[in-house]
Simulated scan of single mutants.
Amino acid sequence: MNDDRILTKIDELGRATLTLNRPELHNAFDDALIATLVEALKGFERDEQVRVVMLAANGKSFSSGADLNWMRRMADYTFEENLADANGLAELMKVLANLSKPTVALVQGAAIGGGVGLVVCCDIALATEQASFCLSEVKLGLIPAVISPYVATAIGARATRRYFLTAERLDAREALRLGLVHEVLADREALAARAEALSRAMLQNGPRAMAAVKELVAEVAHAWLDDDLIADTAERIAEMRASAEGREGLSAFLEKRQPSWVRG
C-alpha cells in the first residue's frame, strides 16, 4: 500500500519498511492516518513473506504526534467521540507492540507525544544524534495515557513520572541512557547502515522462534517467579524443541549447514 501519507515496501528478503511521509506536517497523524497505519501493520502480520518490519519517516521529524487539525476537531468532541478516537490510537500502539515479527524504529528527528509511543512500541529503537524526544501532553492540559504502559516499560516508572510531568525535551544521548532507544548513530546514513545490519542478522533466526521470544518476554517481564511461571517456561522450550522449526535448527547445527529459513 503506497499513498501520499504512508509508504510501504517489502524487499526480496522479506524486510518490510513502513515510512511516515508527511514531512511538511512533521509526520503528525490523525484518526484516518492511524487507521491506515493499523491496516498496514496488520497486512505485514498476515504476510508470511515478511520477516522484519522497520518503521521510518521522511523529512526533518520522525513524528510530532497528533495533527493540529485533528486536535482542533477534538476540542468540540463529546466524551464518546473522544473515547472512540483514543481507542483508535490505543489499537495502533497495541498492534505495533504485539506484532509477531521483529520491529525496528529508525528515528532520524524529533519524536513528540504519540511519536514517542511509536518508538517504544518497537522491539528495537535506533536514533541519530539529531533525534529528540518529548512527552509534551501536559503542556496542553492533557496526559499521555494511551502510550503510558509502553513508555513505563521502556524507561521505568520513576523516569516516566518525571518526563510526563516536566515535558522536558530529551536529546538522543539522554534517551539512550534511559533506555528509550538502544543505539545512537552519527547520522541518517549510519542509521540506515545499522538497520541493514540488524535486519540481516534477524533474517538468520528462526521466524517462529522470534515470535515465541516476543510472547515469552511479554509473559515473564512482570510475572511473579513462582512454580507456575517456571513450569510455563519449561513447557515453552519443550514446544519449540518439538516443533518443525526447532528440529530443523538442531539438525542444521549438527550437520554444519544453514537452516532452511535463512535469508540474505
Rank of each mutant, 00 (worst) to 15 (best):
4 D>E: 11
4 D>V: 07
5 R>H: 07
6 I>P: 09
8 T>C: 12
10 I>S: 09
15 R>F: 02
15 R>P: 04
16 A>R: 02
16 A>Q: 10
18 L>I: 08
19 T>R: 04
19 T>G: 08
24 E>L: 12
25 L>K: 14
29 F>D: 09
30 D>M: 02
30 D>A: 04
35 A>E: 10
36 T>A: 12
37 L>H: 12
38 V>D: 13
39 E>S: 05
44 F>Y: 13
46 R>F: 06
49 Q>P: 03
51 R>C: 06
52 V>S: 13
53 V>L: 12
54 M>N: 05
56 A>C: 12
57 A>K: 00
58 N>I: 14
60 K>A: 15
61 S>D: 05
62 F>R: 02
63 S>E: 06
63 S>N: 08
63 S>G: 07
64 S>D: 05
65 G>Y: 05
65 G>F: 07
67 D>L: 12
70 W>G: 11
72 R>E: 11
73 R>I: 03
74 M>C: 13
78 T>K: 03
79 F>K: 15
84 A>E: 13
85 D>V: 02
86 A>H: 12
86 A>S: 14
88 G>H: 14
92 L>I: 12
98 N>A: 06
99 L>N: 02
101 K>L: 02
104 V>S: 05
105 A>C: 02
110 A>S: 15
112 I>M: 13
112 I>T: 15
112 I>D: 15
112 I>Y: 14
115 G>R: 01
117 G>W: 01
117 G>L: 00
117 G>F: 00
119 V>D: 03
119 V>C: 04
122 C>K: 01
122 C>I: 03
123 D>T: 09
128 T>W: 01
129 E>V: 09
129 E>F: 10
130 Q>S: 14
131 A>D: 00
132 S>V: 01
134 C>N: 10
139 K>E: 14
142 L>Q: 09
142 L>R: 13
143 I>Q: 15
145 A>V: 08
145 A>E: 06
145 A>H: 03
151 V>D: 07
152 A>H: 04
157 A>Y: 13
159 A>C: 04
160 T>M: 11
161 R>H: 07
162 R>W: 06
167 A>F: 10
171 D>P: 15
173 R>F: 02
174 E>K: 12
174 E>G: 05
176 L>W: 01
176 L>I: 02
180 L>T: 01
180 L>I: 04
181 V>L: 04
183 E>Y: 10
185 L>N: 04
187 D>M: 07
189 E>L: 00
192 A>W: 05
202 M>E: 06
202 M>F: 01
204 Q>K: 10
204 Q>F: 11
207 P>E: 01
208 R>Y: 07
208 R>K: 08
211 A>F: 00
212 A>I: 02
213 V>G: 06
214 K>F: 04
216 L>C: 14
217 V>N: 13
217 V>M: 13
220 V>F: 03
221 A>N: 05
224 W>N: 11
227 D>T: 05
229 L>C: 07
230 I>K: 12
230 I>L: 15
234 A>M: 04
243 S>D: 00
243 S>Q: 00
246 G>H: 06
247 R>C: 08
252 A>L: 10
253 F>V: 15
255 E>W: 10
257 R>G: 11
257 R>K: 14
257 R>H: 07
261 W>Q: 08
263 R>M: 06
264 G>W: 08
264 G>Q: 11
